[in-house]
């Protein structure tokens, strides 16, 4: 007896209908890299997987005016190869490239990565940093939720049964804004959540910061922009001291959210160093001494 059934959705409409079939618990199947691990270890809580990986109308990566649309079914590998993403969201490309192995990059999807909300989901900090919005379809229509509010904590997302995350959208960052994503290597951080850092920034001709965003990954239960750090940087002359102060603020902001716990001693140092390094990378433009 099979432990669950499988059906392939032939269109988006079909997928929504299948996911809402009464009398049966259905779960979407995209890249499968999380579900396949899950069903090996646990009894499945669903009756049926609805394969949404081959819908005829997938959104890949498209630009419409100033908006970028990014399909939830785009794999890490596809994202890495996308010229549009390389131009508009290098931090997301960095994050996708940092995912384990070619085999997993060829299967795993951005939507699945966000929805399953593992504490170390690599694509989450960049999407939050980009102020990306998730588009969620249900029989009632579409609703939009900022990605930062979609994932409420480790392994918990706001997408309800019967709903389907179809794509993300975000505004093209202003000209001259640079972005990066850095992650602490797995081996260095083996027994501790894998910290990462997404940053965007720009300095003007006077070497004054006029754009700054910072989103640490796995530092706090919710992945959010650290607005205190951003405020600390904005309209300031870029100096070495400013970067140090921003790093310290990142640690302070994390502690405000999490309080002190067993991993804090490690994390406070790591967050400060990562924040400083990421911000230096995006803000340093050759105008000034820093």
């Amino acid at each position: 007896m099979a432990r669950f059934d499988y059906v392939r959705a032939n269109s988006l409409h079909d997928a929504i209908q299948l996911l809402n079939d009464p009398g049966m618990v259905s779960k979407p199947l995209a890249g499968g890299t999380d579900i396949l691990v899950y069903i090996r270890q646990e009894e499945p809580w669903f009756d049926r997987l609805v394969d949404i990986s081959r819908l005829p109308e997938p959104i890949i990566v498209e630009r419409d005016g100033t908006q970028i649309y990014l399909g939830a079914g785009v794999t890490f590998a596809e994202a890495t190869r996308s010229e549009l993403l390389n131009q508009t969201a290098p931090l997301l490309v960095d994050a996708c490239r940092s995912v384990g192995s070619p085999q997993i990059r060829n299967l795993g999807t951005l939507g699945g990565n966000v929805i399953n909300a593992a504490p170390c989901a690599d694509s989450l900090p960049p999407l939050v940093c980009l102020d990306a919005v998730a588009h969620i379809r249900s029989p009632e229509g579409e609703r939009q939720v900022p990605v930062s509010q979609l994932v409420t904590g480790p392994n918990r997302s706001e997408v309800k049964a019967g709903e389907l995350l179809t794509h993300f959208s975000f505004a093209t960052p202003p000209a001259g804004v640079r972005s990066t994503f850095i992650k602490l290597g797995r081996r260095n951080a083996q027994s501790i959540a894998r910290l990462s850092m997404a940053a965007m920034g720009r300095t003007n001709a006077q070497n004054v910061v006029d754009f700054a965003r910072l989103t640490p990954g796995a530092a706090t239960p919710r992945t959010e922009r650290f607005r205190e750090v951003e405020a600390r940087l904005l309209d300031q002359q870029l100096t070495e001291e400013l970067l140090v102060a921003a790093g310290e603020q990142a640690t302070a902001t994390m502690l405000e959210v999490t309080g002190r716990r067993w991993s804090t001693e490690y994390k406070e140092l790591a967050i400060r160093a990562l924040a400083e390094r990421a911000l230096r990378r995006v803000l340093h433009n050759g105008h000034g001494a820093c």
């Binding site: 499968g32 394969d51 070619p102 085999q103 997993i104 299967l107």
Partner: peptide, 13 residues
């Protein structure tokens, strides 16, 4: 055309 882990794919896929 792309290398994948066959333990991460469901047979009917």
């Amino acid at each position: 055309g792309r290398v994948i882990n066959s333990c991460m794919v469901l047979a009917p896929q």
